[in-house]
Design a protein around this nucleic acid. Sequence first.
RNA 1: UGGGGCGUGGCCAAGCGGUAAGGCGCGGGACUUUGGAUCCCGUAUUCGGUGGUUCGAAUCCACCCGCCCCAGCCA
Length: 567
Amino acid sequence: MPTPSADRRPEAPPRDFIRDIVSQDLVSGKHGGKVHTRFPPEPNGYLHIGHAKSICLNFGIALEYASPCNLRFDDTNPTKEDIEYVTAIQTDVKWLGFDWGSHVYFASDYFEQLYGFAVELIRKGKAYVDSLTADEIREHRGTLTEPGRESPYRHRSVDENIDLFARMRAGEFADGSVVLRAKIDMASGNINMRDPVLYRIRRATHYRTADQWCIYPLYDYAHPVSDAIEGITHSLCTLEFEDHRPFYDWVLDNTSVACHPQQIEFAKLNLSYTMMGKRKLIEMVQGQHVSGWDDPRMPTICGLRRRGYTPESVRNFCERIGVAKRENVVDIANLEHAIREDLNVRAPRVMAVLNPLKVVIENYPDGQVEEVDVINNPEDSSAGTRKVPFGRVLYIERDDFMEDPPKKFFRLSPGKEVRLRCAYFIKCTDVVKDPATGEVTELRASYDPATRGGDSPDGRKVKATLHWVSAERALDAEVRLYDRLFTIEDPAAEDNYLDHLNPHSLEVLRGAKAEPSLAGAHAGARYQFERLGYFCVDSDSSAGRLVFNRTVSLRDTWAKIQKNSGI
RNA sequence: UGGGGCGUGGCCAAGCGGUAAGGCGCGGGACUUUGGAUCCCGUAUUCGGUGGUUCGAAUCCACCCGCCCCAGCCA
């Protein structure tokens, strides 16, 4: 199976404001002339195409400077995380083509250090144990327009705080009864600076540290410290953390951690007709609106993989959409373009008929079968040809015949001649219908033996070339056609997004016919079904039962003509 | 009269005081044994608005308008 490399590197390396900052920092020597990034997922779900943008950014920058990029699991919330997700995340990052080498880390491995720096903050009078309830803390926090009020426990002595914090760790207090808070400014216009919580008590079994701890640090505190411990230079995150940066810096400025990474925020990816929210994706899975995380309609990395996307196409896509600070909704046509572009060059062509219509070639000798040579990939001359059986009875696509065609339709119709790809010219001589329903059940045709291979010696031209499959030798196949998951562009913007699920996002065709060379095709193999689109063998496929997923259709000019002329 | 961001074509996105890159999409044409691919050509006299500075402004200044984020012991 010839698969030429489609890993075409971009003409020019991508540029964006983050790479500009990184290269400026490099010349100014800001971080000791080093670059060290990280991708820090929380293992509480599967990765999606939005994460791919971040992965390509972080690992991409590292690659450009021959620097490391850490894979760090941000696992500070034992109630949500699971080992299942860390395994899946590693699989997906690797599949995308990135390598963290030995740099896999877990925030949970820093719990002891995190505790130590918290004690340091207490010693400096910069943190205190608060005995207010969660509700009371909320009330004291104030609102967007009103300042907060100080907790009555804010002025506990350092010694008392040290003692209380140790007892929090020791498990002397009930869950939620006390927290450790930073002592900053309850009147700050930035709510994140109104004495944010550093530690909470949660008696939950952590998937890695089990019951070793009953106190867990919060993201805002754990993240800067984790970055610093790892010597990260540029900590890239999404826009919603912009407000948290002052606290990120505060933590690093007020503890003795070794370095001070720079947090830079960029806009996360939104894709039209789908959504990325983790909570919503979980709902899609748990509510069985899709078959699972890897349902080919899902925007998850594993969904795209099962759908037939290549890692190269996903990377190219991420590179092309760019990185900026402006909110965006990228047209999903960009993703589709990326996979077509890649598969056009590397996918072997093959013939399959999705909705078969029988054609009997009346002047073709009964019982005769010949093998015609068919081109494997016109984009790749080294791909060569293969033999495909041709016979008296064939299947063509139902859509390729119209009894009463509009003038722009130049496929088969009564009396018209077309080419069967790499085989013969045939002319439709008769139409057989079900007398009851009027449905066309079969076509009668004649062929011109002189046109073998698809060229007419008399120079006669034909307007269309059809794909076909020998009825006698065809393989039965199930083909799954996918469409956008939602009917509206930005389902995440709706509170009732489930109401906008596309009821036709999956169409299963059980009567498809495929050419015999597809026998034994292995799961994951990608093909172009000529004139139809790119398809891959699904993992549900087995020796006796071929199952294909349509990754993406071919560009369809005819469909456009029909649409524009209202046919 | 809380704080933080962002506004360049239908969608992304360059641009950093010298007269609007590129990609997707869209429209047209050439070529074609995939109505595929490929190849041409077209697609913002204008950068949210209004003033101002300047020989010159998308780029600088002022004011205004619009959109997004923040009141988890989630990340």
